[in-house]
């Protein structure tokens, strides 16, 4: 049974979501403010964290930042009621795995949660390490290196990089990457994959452009001569 942590100050919404998610077979823990949320996220071992942005005390972004600083790679699904596109993507830039704007259909939430959870154990299916163009991705040890430098990646970023490396220089479409890493197809105007790619690029020791954008088709890893 997967363990979820829901951090949201909206008590009514939280209790209703608890009913729905419990019915779906998840074990839910609630936190109503940022401090409690961070404490629980750091102490417990959760399979997924559902995180609201507007929280009393420290807000969702700060919580996420501190969580990632502690090198906790628990998948995070951001729930945000703020309208701005920038707000939505901001969470991804801080290391969230996916986001769902409020209001959402509960079924959509369940689908996203299941997709993120399905993806996580999948890493242990194909154990063999893959190597291409200076990248080594080792799912068994959950380790990825570039030119021998270890990369600090979130699970989503790890899966995206793994898919690209396995492609060995072939162009991988955005949809393929999204299915592999987020467990779902991309929605129109969805920038989440682009944000994840840009996050990976920022973490590369040299030549961020070695992950190349192929306009209208997807991404690929460039083989340097």
């Amino acid at each position: 049974m997967s363990k979820l942590l829901l951090v949201d100050d909206d008590a009514e919404l939280s209790s209703m979501l608890e009913q729905i998610l419990t019915k779906e077979g998840f074990q839910l823990t609630l936190a109503a403010d940022g401090e409690t949320g961070l404490e629980r996220a750091l102490s417990g071992s959760y399979d997924l964290i559902l995180l609201d942005v507007m929280l009393p005390g420290i807000d969702g972004f700060q919580l996420l930042q501190r969580l990632r600083q502690q090198a906790r790679n628990t998948p995070v699904l951001m729930l945000t009621a703020r309208g701005d596109d920038d707000d939505r993507v901001a969470g991804l830039e801080l290391g969230a795995d996916d986001y769902l704007p409020k209001p959402f259909y509960p079924k959509e939430l369940i689908a996203r949660v299941k997709a993120l959870l399905r993806r996580t154990p999948a890493t242990s299916v194909r154990q063999e390490a893959t190597e291409f163009a200076g990248f080594v991705v080792d799912p068994a040890n959950n380790k990825a290196t570039c030119e021998g430098v270890e990369l600090e990646l979130t699970p989503t970023e790890f899966d995206i990089l793994r898919t690209l490396v396995r492609g060995a220089g072939e162009v991988i479409s955005k949809d393929q990457l999204s299915i592999a890493a987020l467990g779902r197809s991309l929605a129109p105007f969805d920038r989440s994959l682009d944000v994840h790619i840009s996050n990976i690029r920022k973490k590369l020791p040299t030549d961020p452009e070695r992950i190349q954008t192929v306009r209208g088709r997807g991404y690929r890893i460039l083989q340097f001569a």
Binding site: L13, M16, A81, R82, G83, D84, K102, P103, F104
Partner: peptide
């Protein structure tokens, strides 16, 4: 605008969930 959207979306989110329940 950002605040208004937050204030309007929060009750809407609750309503959608309550409706399904």
């Amino acid at each position: 605008l950002s605040d208004v959207s937050h204030e309007l979306r929060s009750p809407l989110a609750r309503m959608q969930v309550a409706l399904m329940l």
